[in-house]
Structures are given as C-alpha cells and as structure tokens.
C-alpha cells in the first residue's frame, strides 16, 4: 500500500476523505492489507479517543449483499449507526458501501461470483416505471436475481471462448442492428480485450 492510500485511510479515520480517494482505496488489489492497516489505525484511534468505533460490529458486507438482493436493509445497521452519538462515521461507512458497489460491480470489472446480478435491481425497478408495459407473461419481480460470472475469473480457454462469441456478436450487431458505426465500435471494443 503506497503513501497516498495510507493518507486516504488516515483521512477516512478523520472523516476527511473524499469519495474519489475512498474509491481508489477500495479498488486497491490487496484489500487484506488495507483491512489490516485500517484495523491497526482504528485500534490506535480508539485508544486515543477512548471510545469504541461505531464501525465495530457494522457488517458492511451484509448491507451490500442486502442492497444487491433488493431486500430492505435490516434495522440493525441503521440502528447501530444512529445509536452512536457521533455522525462522523456515517460518511465513511456509507462511502464504503457505495464504493464497494461501484468498484466491485461497475463496468464488468471485479465482480464476485456468488453475488446476485446488480442489474436485477434496476430491472425490478424498471417494472415499476409507468412506461414499462409488460409485453410478456414474465413477471420480472418474481425472477430470482441473475447469478454473476466474473470475466476476470475465467481461465484462458474460457476467456477465448467468450471473446470469440463477443466478437461474433459484435459482428452480427454491425450487420443486423442497423446502427452502422456503433456495430463497428462494438467490434473494435470486443477485439480490444478487456
């Protein structure tokens, strides 16, 4: 972990970290290192301030999981947050949840297998919009969340297999979707590798 990330971590302890820095920190490849550093500094911080961290016992992963599942977050988390007199922890905690969502699930990168697909949430929301007219007898709200597959987790053969299909689809797209350059753009994007 470099100095800049340490600085961000330190700023987070003081509730002074900006969103971008938090995202950068959470996208750091060695999260165990970040976690260990956070715990160390948190311990020191607690000793110095003679207080317990409100984050202690706050299960961020559960919150993320629940948000992705589309379930209402259990009351335990907000209670824990609101019970504490200090509101200073709300931003880092929420930022961590939000950044975990952004970093972990954005842009097809770093998705963890075993989590429901993020779009499933938007999808359920979509059915609630006035313009959405269910044309088929498919109730998406009843559809279970779609299992994710991390492209980065595929082995070489599997990735080659997917790449070939991606390119072939992009080709069909440039032919079939009638959007001219957009199809080519998809083709170039697919052949550019991820």
């Amino acid at each position: 972990m470099d100095d800049r990330l340490r600085e961000t971590l330190s700023a987070m302890l003081d509730d002074e970290a900006d969103e971008l820095s938090v995202r950068r920190l959470l996208s750091h490849e060695d999260q165990s290192d970040v976690h260990a550093q956070w715990q160390r500094w948190q311990g020191i911080h607690d000793l110095m301030h003679r207080s317990h961290s409100p984050v202690e016992g706050l299960d961020v992963s559960t919150a993320v999981r629940e948000m992705l599942d589309g379930r209402i977050r259990s009351q335990a988390v907000p209670e824990l947050v609101t019970r504490e007199a200090s509101r200073r922890w709300q931003w880092p905690a929420l930022a961590m949840v939000a950044a975990a969502l952004m970093v972990g699930f954005g842009a097809g990168a770093g998705w963890d297998s075993g989590q429901p697909f993020p779009d499933a949430l938007a999808f359920v929301t979509a059915t609630e919009t006035p313009d959405a007219e269910p044309a088929n007898a498919v109730s998406t709200s009843e559809d279970p969340p779609v299992q994710e597959v991390a492209l980065q987790g595929l082995n070489e053969k599997q990735w080659e297999h997917v790449s070939r299909y991606l390119l072939e689809h992009a080709q069909h797209n440039s032919v079939g979707a009638g959007q001219g350059s957009v199809g080519y753009a998809r083709l170039a994007s697919a052949s550019g590798g991820y």
């Binding site: 998705w111 697909f117 597959v149 991390a150 492209l151 987790g153 991820y194």
Partner: peptide, 8 residues
C-alpha cells in the same frame, strides 16, 4: 463454463 451473467 460457469453458469451466470457478466455485463460489459
């Protein structure tokens, strides 16, 4: 291949 979806 694994079962599931990826989105790009």
């Amino acid at each position: 291949m694994p079962t599931g979806a990826s989105r790009i």
